[in-house]
Simulated scan of single mutants.
Amino acid sequence: MDSYIELQLLPDPEFPANMLMNALFAKLHRGLVSSGEGRIGVSFPDVEQKGVGLGARLRLHGAATDLERLMAVNWLQGMRDHLSCGSVNLVPANAAYRVVRRVQAKSSPERERRRLIARKGISAEAAVQAIPDSAAEMLRLPYLLLSSQSTEQQFRLFVEHLPVQKEPVGGAFSAYGLSSTATVPWF
């Protein structure tokens, strides 16, 4: 993972940055599904700035050949007027590393109860006792609002940047460019 591409959203009077980032990330997901093969990771360099959510920059990390292959798919179609896309660059030698992962909240006790009933065959009353409404987990992480292509329902994809570390950890990335174990360069 020696290279990166930086995508910077341009200010737009009609669309807020978070709406554009949602659209950009949805397109990236489709591009990664068709050509990413688990070798491209993402990071959001502005995430730690207070009040900006994930920010207006998205970095793609990987080997130069993998990044060039992704960019050849033309997954940015329809977004080019809304962003500045850098070229493939080498990661700075002094870069640190961090895991950028998806966190899934257990925010719907009702959904969890339905799953429990289906799996264990217990009654609705027993499921309510096992999973009370107070079990809902509210995350305070930045997120992307995406739509499922299969169900067409919107969902929040919560993104967490784990603490910075000195050494890289290899591994595969999801079709969202996220991993629970593999690191991306952080600079």
Rank of each mutant, 00 (worst) to 15 (best):
M1H: 07
I5D: 00
I5H: 08
D12M: 09
P16V: 06
A17C: 04
M19F: 14
F25P: 00
L28G: 03
R30Q: 05
G31I: 01
S34R: 05
S35E: 07
S35C: 07
S43Y: 05
F44Q: 04
P45Y: 00
V47I: 15
E48Q: 09
Q49S: 13
K50M: 00
V52G: 02
G53S: 10
R57H: 13
L58V: 02
R59P: 02
G62R: 01
L67Q: 03
L67T: 06
E68Q: 15
W75A: 10
L76I: 07
Q77L: 08
G78D: 03
M79I: 10
R80E: 01
D81T: 14
C85I: 09
G86D: 02
N89Y: 09
L90T: 15
L90C: 12
P92K: 12
P92H: 07
P92E: 09
A95I: 06
A95M: 09
V99H: 00
V103H: 09
R111T: 10
R111S: 13
R113S: 03
R113E: 14
R114L: 12
R114S: 12
R115H: 11
L116V: 01
L116C: 13
L116K: 14
R119Q: 11
S123I: 03
Q129I: 02
D133V: 00
S134P: 00
A135C: 06
A136Y: 08
L141G: 10
Y143C: 09
L144R: 08
S147Q: 15
T151P: 01
F155D: 09
R156V: 05
R156W: 02
L157W: 04
F158V: 05
L162Q: 14
P163G: 11
V164P: 11
K166N: 12
P168I: 09
S180I: 06
T183H: 00
P185M: 06
F187S: 15
